[in-house]
Write a protein that binds this DNA or RNA. Structure first.
Length: 291
DNA sequence: CTGTCCCGCCATGGC
DNA sequence: GCCATGGCGGGACAG
């Protein structure tokens, strides 16, 4: 009802930069491979179907791998792990981050647990903004993070969403950390997914992942020249959110290579941040529950 | 003007 | 040498 974007008056034949963004590419990638019988993904195949150069595939694939959605099987071949693998991957990242990097504390306040600006993220990761944009776009397309802004400063910031991004009518997303705390517990990717927690509001990506991708303002995929004729159909016509931006994340500049390392650091920081209250809450809960 | 970030050159490492 | 991989920044685009 209030979607500013999405404007295609009488000129559908215009090159739009947005359509070539990594975020869109990632969304298309997900739509294309997040199907039932998909377990092997070839880089060339992906590049052809998405109509992008190989280089671009590497960009998103690396990020997806960092998050656990993909796993490199062999040369030019990746395995589809699915969104269900995210919790595990993040948990791994967390441990590694806590093990290696300990001097991370710098921009984590009690209230900005999940909020961070791209600039802060860059500083924390000793990276350059440029790289952050790229990764941020991909992560945002997966609804792992979302672009927002401080309630007052109005400055752009990024909020960690975790495995819940299917909230169609969840505007404020509840800023009550108190309430969220418990909730997030079961929903948080850091924690191992229980077994039955859905049927309420959010949770269980294994089931929601499909509809999850049905966002973005455009209709189906946003291909340009030709259409694959396989992805754009009537599979998931579940529209929910009409937003499309980018987020934050990592990169590197001092360090030699950044690939997953940057992402790992980034997530490590994030995880470390929320780990604070996470552990705290966990201990409390245990104490309360039973000794 | 600044912020965003696409495109692709070319370094790197493995055969 | 070829090829897969992916740093890295110029400079185009949006606001």
């Amino acid at each position: 009802m209030s979607s500013p974007q999405e404007s295609e008056p009488p000129n559908p034949n215009h090159y739009n930069r947005k359509d070539k963004s990594l975020g869109v590419l990632c969304t298309n990638f997900l739509k294309l491979y997040d199907r039932d019988d998909v377990d092997s993904i070839g880089l060339d195949d992906a590049a052809n179907r998405l109509d992008v150069e190989r280089r671009r595939i590497y960009d998103i694939v690396n990020i997806l791998e960092s998050v656990g959605v993909l796993s490199k099987k062999a040369k030019n071949q990746y395995s589809w792990k699915g969104f269900g693998a995210i919790p595990r991957a993040l948990d791994k990242l967390k441990e590694e981050a806590l093990r290696e990097n300990s001097s991370t504390s710098s921009c984590y306040h009690s209230e900005t647990v999940h909020l961070i600006s791209l600039d802060d993220a860059a500083k924390a990761l000793l990276a350059k903004s440029r790289r952050l944009y790229d990764i941020a776009n991909v992560l945002s397309s997966m609804d792992l993070i979302e672009k927002t802004q401080h309630p007052e400063s109005k400055k752009p910031a990024f909020r960690w969403l975790g495995l819940k991004g299917s909230s169609k009518n969840g505007p404020a997303t509840a800023l009550d950390l108190k309430e969220s705390k418990k909730r997030v517990f079961g929903t948080d990717v850091t924690n191992t997914l229980p077994k039955k927690y859905k049927a309420d509001s959010s949770l269980d990506w294994n089931s929601n992942q499909k509809e999850q991708h049905g966002k973005h303002s455009s209709k189906g995929i946003v291909f340009g020249p030709f259409t694959p004729a396989k992805v754009a159909e009537g599979g998931d016509s579940e529209d929910k959110n009409v937003r499309r931006e980018d987020l934050e994340d990592v990169a590197s500049s001092y360090r030699p290579q950044y690939r997953n390392q940057a992402l790992i650091d980034l997530f490590g920081h994030y995880v470390a941040a929320w780990k604070s209250w996470y552990v705290e809450a966990a201990e409390m809960k245990q104490i309360q529950e039973v000794s």
